[in-house]
Design a protein around this nucleic acid. Structure first.
Lengths: 133, 133
DNA sequence: GCTATTGTACTAGTGTAGTAGTTCATTAGC
DNA sequence: GCTAATGAACTACTACACTAGTACAATAGC
């Protein structure tokens, strides 16, 4: 089977962060279903030719973010506690946090709320070209 | 005279970044006028009890961001080339960049444009409480 | 219980960001 | 020109993030 994830050690972005983002994206997009098992730490480390600790760190933070559940001897699984939207909610929380940080920085630079809304529309146009509200 | 800027070495935020943000904020809010001279590298370093290189680094990045102009023997001044809005524009560009980065991360997490707008309103409510559009 | 497989913990090496100490080049003003 | 002031450049130290190597503990399945 083709490898599910891929990382670029030379990208400058830490490997464990690349893994975290890919897992969250896969969960948010439904590529990974609730309850589905992730590759084991050692198998994924072997596949990506990185150290098991690097994969373990990514999984540890994903568990901290309530995206996956993991336990020794069993493996790591996409979280499936109750409503299936819980996981997506957790992912959305991360996105919200990123936006919140950006808004705080804008405010510290003297921008008011309307100015920030204008800036956001510009950013949306950049990353979602052709979509008008 | 009271010191214009203040830094906290124990905050975890690099000193030079604290300085950059304070200068940009002062420029954006009009506390520092176009053409106004900033404290010299060595005077500010002495005042804040940090190394001249730390202040110099902040000034260097501020010049890279087109916020100030600096030259040896003269000092550092708030940029005043033509329209006075150029400097504020430069500051706004930084804010726009922060938002753009956040939007890119949200998109990578599977959020679409409407979802991001909703998240932004939440962030605005957090940092600008009581302001409804 | 025994074994294989899982994630975890401990230690260490490597690179880089941040800061400091000091010296050098450039400019203004007389 | 001479002097004093300015920012720039160079080196080095420190802390921390990132990754790797290896050994350990916990669990599942028989």
């Amino acid at each position: 089977m083709p490898p599910i994830f891929s990382v670029d050690p030379r990208s400058g972005i830490p490997i464990y962060l690349q893994l975290i983002e890919q897992v969250k994206r896969a969960v948010a997009l439904g590529t990974l279903d609730s309850g589905e098992q992730l590759p084991t730490v050692k198998a994924l480390a072997l596949d990506l030719t990185v150290n098991p600790n690097t994969v373990a760190r990514a999984y540890r933070e994903l568990e901290r973010d309530r995206v996956i559940e993991t336990s020794p001897g069993r493996g790591s699984f996409v979280r499936a506690d109750g409503s299936p939207s819980v996981v997506k909610r957790a992912v959305t929380d991360v996105a919200a946090s990123a936006l919140s940080d950006a808004v705080r920085e804008c405010r510290s630079l003297g921008c008011d709320a309307p100015a920030i809304r204008t800036l956001l529309e510009g950013a949306l146009e950049r990353w979602f070209p052709g979509e008008n509200s």
